[in-house]
């Protein structure tokens, strides 16, 4: 009995245990769920330890770079959250993470999500092809009216109401398209799991 064989049977059992939830909540599903949560948490912990903590904290500290005592202290302060008496110390680490994250968020969203998107929305409407040009007009109207919909500083009356209404229609098409896209992605995963059961595990399908 090879390791691969044992692994396939474990994977097969866990796959069926998760699918058993489709009938109703049961003990097999709960076992698989508990294993999933535990294994995922462990995986994230080990992976981030190897990829982030070792190269960015432990190696510099080992090589005598004492400046790295600061992130080591900040990291330990974060864990103080678990001890009620000294919980307030973790605020220092949280403040550092929140402040740095806010700084990055401010600049990256300003550059990539605001300026880049506005820049991409400004282009020549006639491209030489009727359908692409029509699409370009739709894209422009959809973007502008969609922003109208998110503009809450003024009451949606008159022109703003019409703009917001058209924007709402575009947003519904977007949600519909995203929904359809997500459904297809999930169906593709489902096909993958059924293929695993029939091909890899039970070897019914060649």
């Amino acid at each position: 009995m090879t390791v691969e064989f044992i692994g396939l049977w474990i994977a097969g059992f866990l796959t069926l245990a998760i699918f058993s939830f489709l009938y109703r909540d049961n003990v097999f599903y709960k076992i698989a769920e508990a294993v999933y949560v535990g294994i995922s948490a462990g995986y994230i912990m080990v992976q981030s330890w190897h990829d982030v903590v070792i190269p960015n904290l432990l190696i510099p500290l080992k090589s005598g770079n004492w400046l790295y005592i600061i992130p080591a202290a900040l990291s330990l302060f974060m864990l103080a959250q678990l001890i009620p008496k000294i919980r307030w110390i973790s605020r220092i680490s949280i403040a550092f993470v929140v402040g740095t994250g806010a700084g990055y968020g401010f600049v990256t969203y300003l550059k990539s999500n605001l300026f880049e998107q506005v820049h991409s929305a400004i282009y020549p409407l006639w491209s030489g092809n009727i359908w692409t040009s029509l699409g370009g007009v739709v894209l422009l109207i959809g973007t502008v009216t969609g922003i109208f919909y998110f503009f809450f500083s003024l009451e949606h009356k008159g022109v703003l109401r019409i703009g917001a209404r058209v924007g709402m229609m575009f947003l519904m098409i977007t949600f519909g398209a995203s929904f359809g896209y997500t459904v297809m992605a999930r169906i593709s995963l489902l096909i993958g799991r059924i293929y695993f059961i029939l091909h890899d595990w039970l070897q019914i399908v060649k």
Binding site: Q117, S120, A121, G142, G146, T174, A177
Partner: peptide
């Protein structure tokens, strides 16, 4: 239309 909505 989807890109327009996403962009907004």
């Amino acid at each position: 239309p989807n890109t327009a909505g996403q962009r907004a």
